[in-house]
Design a protein around this nucleic acid. Structure first.
Lengths: 237, 237
DNA sequence: CAGTATCCCTTATGATACTG
DNA sequence: CAGTATCATAAGGGATACTG
């Protein structure tokens, strides 16, 4: 539920609804456009379905989301109040981008990365016809090392098994580097020049590959100047 | 600690640090300028000192706050990362102001209201010399019905007992209405005209009283148009 | 697809009292 | 002033299996 702070301050009233674990991530997913239960789940894979269900119920009761059941086709959408949370999500993302650059190994989830990437393909930049991109993350455990992105007809599908189509382009990179590129911590040019990310395939395509992907919306956020001494860090206690 | 979401998304990384109960309220207090432990406590009176202490430690470890101990004089201040949270606090406050207009009786804490008001006196608007404002909240339990604000020499003090000075002005209102004025849900003019708030004292002063107070920073926030049907509400489950 | 049903268990938090 | 110490309770949340 999010128990009360017993304050009339609007920040407190807002946090009563929003400060529970996972809640803002679900709002983020809804802002991003996910609507179906299992679609939402993919954005918060470590959350149990029970808890997701509970949180969605809370968001509906709070007037932030609506549940539409059109004959078995259930969708969750944001209400106007929910849509108005976008600035909050953005402010959080900007802050997180600026001040939490250190990502732990446990945070590097390839499935989540592919899920993000597939939602942000620039279909106008990708060649017409079917394009199959093979991602190879050396250093990542075998079962999640290889991924395929099949792009066709303005649609993109993620596969964790070889779909069998001829591979157009292969992108090879330690998962961490690919994530850094996605987040905008590292730009394509630098990553490619240093060899931390490698693109394999026909010369004439290779150059345009970076344009196929629209990176994280937070990628363009200006990083703080690395001042004299700063302590970064997660809360560890 | 705020356990991990195991996501590289900056929103998730930010919420790992910020989504624990009370944390954003402490950040709000720090943004507002409170520094001393007991000063911070006044802003979060329902929080136990143990928990406040713990949260402050977490904020320090997270690089959001600094603890300065100058010879026993302990102060907490925001780091540059912490100061950069102001947009987040503001976005939350704006959202809360727009979408959570229904304040429960339990949220109407007169002490908190006076504490807020006293921090936001427009000393240039208040008469020179000593000004004593008596707040009377009929309907509020006897022990917290009467409050005094003593303003002098650019300083304001809150008293829950009669300080004995001659009262310059008395403001009488149900606590709820005074809170609504403070939050900007109700403007002075309307409140005075309807009689929900009454100002007693010398005619020439009465008119200027509203100018003495700078209301909540969120008071000017535009409220959403009250559309056809909307369900407001707290999470109640 | 869209959730429920259980079960367990840590831990977060509230309340209160005390200290250098 | 600036916290610690202690304690007990509730509940929040993780894991897993199951259902119409």
């Amino acid at each position: 539920m999010g128990s009360s702070y017993y304050q009339f301050c609007p920040v407190a009233k807002a946090m009563e609804l929003l400060d529970e674990r996972w809640t803002m991530l679900i709002v983020r997913e809804l802002v991003t456009g996910s609507q179906h239960f299992n679609e939402l789940r993919r954005g918060v894979p470590r959350m149990s379905p029970t808890l997701l269900s509970k949180r969605l119920g809370q968001l509906v009761r709070a007037g932030i989301a609506d549940r539409h059941d059109d004959d078995g086709d259930v969708r969750y959408t944001l209400t106007s109040a929910g849509r108005d949370l976008q600035p909050v999500v953005e402010a959080l993302g900007v802050w997180g981008t600026r001040w939490i650059g250190e990502i732990g190994d446990e945070d590097l989830d390839p499935k989540l990365l592919l899920w993000d990437i597939h939602r942000n393909i620039d279909h106008d930049a990708v060649p017409v016809g079917r394009t199959t991109i093979h991602f190879d993350f050396p250093g990542t455990p075998a079962h999640s090392r290889h991924w395929w992105l099949v792009i066709a007809a303005g649609q993109a599908d993620v596969c964790d098994a070889d779909p069998g189509f001829p591979v157009t382009i292969t992108i090879t990179a330690a998962l961490r580097y690919m994530v850094r590129v996605w987040r905008g911590d590292l730009d394509w040019r630098t990553a490619l020049r240093s060899g931390d990310v490698t693109i394999t395939g026909p010369e004439e395509l290779r150059r345009s590959v970076p344009q196929w992907f629209t990176l994280s919306v937070f990628a363009p956020v200006a990083r703080p100047v690395p001042s004299a001494s700063r302590r970064d860090g997660q809360i560890t206690s």
